[in-house]
Amino acid sequence: MSVDRERVLHDVGKYVARTAMNLPEGALVAPALAELMLRDVYGRGDEPRMSETFDALVGETDDPVLGECRDCLQEIDALEGDARAGDVDALTRIATLARSISERLKAWARA
């Protein structure tokens, strides 16, 4: 499957960290922003989760950068329960992972 880099960068790279990139590293996530950040990564209602969007665009891949991004997204999915319960560590970790995905994809798309 050929990967549409522009689309991956736009639909995942930008949107996954839409809220997270506005949060300083390690800072507490305010409740209003937490709600927005969780929506960025888990979707709302029938919206796809970011990991699902990523899988649909990337499919099977040997690309190491995309592999790292997939790992990060899986970790984000695993944190959902704690994050929705308001666990501060889970929320700050999600923000860090989201920013990391965004940075990796930017570098990947421009390589």
Binding site: Y15, R18, T19, N22, A32, L33, L36, R39, D40
Partner: peptide, 10 residues
């Protein structure tokens, strides 16, 4: 509308 919410929040 997500982007709008974000700007409104920030």
């Amino acid at each position: 509308d997500r982007y709008v919410e974000l700007l409104h929040a920030l």
